[in-house]
Structure formats: structure tokens, C-alpha cells
Design a protein around this nucleic acid. Structure first.
Lengths: 152, 152
DNA sequence: CTAGGAGCTAGAGTCGGCTCTAGGTCAAGC
DNA sequence: GCTTGACCTAGAGCCGACTCTAGCTCCTAG
């Protein structure tokens, strides 16, 4: 239980998080930090490990498609402190649902892509025909299956 | 083997594909169609089922994150006709790899989100503690696990 | 004959999320 | 004393992918 907070410069935080210094200032400007960023001599930003932790969460939420306004809202809730856990949970659950459906959509897309890759593999190496267990992607309705698969 | 091509207006295609008429013109302008879009009386665009099929593929590729330039390149290859199947396959495989890693990343993100959702559920309903099989998301290195999870 | 609706073109505008620039401060090293 | 490098602010610029606008042509129905 030594030093609680390690005092990092913006450059160091950029290096650790992978965000650019521009992005860090931008995030601050957009109110995405939980604690107002402290300032050292000369008005320089001083960050602690807790800020890096928070940014790590932010990066993951962003990477999974959470827009900045939602992230700001989450930051607001956390900043307000204990008492709004329901709201945080709601926000997180909504995002969870979003990510889940995104993964579902991408998986469907992947089905078609795999199918087309299989088609071209067969064209280029007809010997291997039939070795795919290739579950053709199902069209919305009872289409004649052929149409779209033949496009391109 | 009746009518080969059904002659659709831009509005009809918009309705069927879910793309806007603006987007359809934009896609054409960007060279994303395989066949140059035919024109009817008064210079109006006339589409066939094959165009709709192609657009369906485009929509899926776009939805899975393929940028317009890559889509254009694919359209170019298909337009050129037989003989460049290797290139098409390469392009599709690259995209397949991209989508696969995207799904992987999203799944990792989902792990953290689920973890945090679990944390808030436990806060709000401590009776249910322990009923999660909640596989906490693993931090990049051998971190003390706690830090980031506590952020927010 | 006139109003409405769908279509046309070229080009401007929008939005999200940064990214970069200009012009300045400050501390350390040569 | 001067340069270098990291930092500061405010605000402009960029990129991708549309989306919208202005001003026009048709056709059809009332």
C-alpha cells in the first residue's frame, strides 16, 4: 500500500493506453474523465493509475462501438458516485445487448463470406469439391438459393 | 425460364434493399456496380434482379466493415469477368480474416462488459452473489486484477 | 392545365471521432 | 543565451459514408 497514485504525464498516459495525446485532451474536453484531470506546474496535466484504469475501460467500450455521448453519460454517473447503480447497469446492459447483436450480425456476414470463399476455392481447385461442410447462408425468405450466391 | 430481368426503378430497389435512393446513386457514382446501370426513358435508372442480388452482397460486405474502396475493387474484379478468381479469393479471405478478428475483439469486450454487468447486479441484488460463473476478463499482463474492474 | 410524385444532376452539408496547426510557455542541457 | 522537447489552448481540418439541396424533366391524374 505504498504510493496511491503515480503521477503520469500526458505523454506517458498516451504511451500506456495507446491513445494519442490529442485524443486524451479531446476526451477530457468531452467530459469523458471521471475525475477532473489534475494540473501540475505550468498547467500540465497530471494523471494517476486510476485514470489509466478508467481509460482502459473507455477504450474497451469504444472498441465495442459505444459512442462518445454514451461514454460521457457513463462517466457522469460514475462521477456522481454511489446511488445510481441501476442507471449504470441499464447503460451497460444496453451496450451488452448492442455488442451481442453486433457479434450476431458479423457472424451471419461471416457465413456468407465463408460461403463465397468456398465457392472460389472450388473454382480454383475443383479436386477438393465436396470437402466443405459448407452450410450455405440462408436467404431471408424461401428464395431459390442461387441468386445472390451467384452475384460476384 | 420466363423473364430474365424484372426492370425495377430506383425507388423499388431502395425499398427492397433498404438502401436509400441517394445511397444507390452514390454507390453507382462510386463504381460499386458490376454492370453499368441501364437507363430507361428520360434517363431513369433501370435495375434488374441481378443488381439487387449484387447489392445484397454489397450490403453484407459493408455491414461487416468492408470499406467502399475494397468493395469497388471487388466489383472491378467481377466486372472484368472470368480469370481473376485468385484475386477475388484473396480479397474475400482478407475480409474474412478481418471479420473474424473483429468478432474476436468484440467477444473480448463483451467479457469485460458482462463482468461489469455482473458486478452491478451483485451490488443491486447481493442475495444472488455467487451464482455467476463469471470468468473475470483477464488483463493483458499479470495485473493485480481489481484495478480496472474497480474503475467505474 | 396544373399539381403531384418520382426521377435526374452536381455539388454542398453532416456526423462521429479524432488529428493537426498555430502560436505560446516552461525547464533542462549545451 | 539558445535550442530542444514536452506540454499548453483554441480552433481548423480530415475521413468515410452517406444525406440533402437546388433546380430541372417527365408522366399521370383530376
Amino acid at each position: 500500500m505504498a504510493e496511491v497514485t503515480a503521477s503520469l504525464s500526458i505523454g506517458q498516459v498516451a504511451e500506456r493506453t495507446g491513445l494519442s495525446v490529442h485524443a486524451l485532451r479531446f476526451y477530457e474536453h468531452e467530459g469523458l474523465f471521471v475525475n477532473p484531470v489534475r494540473r501540475g506546474p505550468g498547467g500540465r496535466r497530471v494523471y494517476g493509475e486510476d485514470d489509466v484504469d478508467w481509460l482502459t475501460v473507455c477504450i474497451i467500450l469504444r472498441a465495442s462501438g459505444m459512442p462518445l455521448p454514451a461514454l460521457r453519460r457513463y462517466a457522469d454517473l460514475v462521477r456522481q458516485g454511489v446511488g445510481n447503480e441501476e442507471e449504470r447497469l441499464t447503460l451497460l446492459r444496453e451496450h451488452q445487448a448492442y455488442v451481442t447483436t453486433q457479434i450476431g450480425k458479423l457472424t451471419e456476414c461471416l457465413d456468407l463470406i465463408r460461403f463465397k470463399v468456398g465457392v472460389y476455392e472450388d473454382i480454383l481447385d475443383p479436386d477438393g469439391v465436396g470437402e466443405h461442410q459448407c452450410h450455405a447462408p440462408v436467404a431471408p425468405a424461401g428464395e431459390e438459393r442461387s441468386s445472390m450466391a451467384s452475384a460476384g
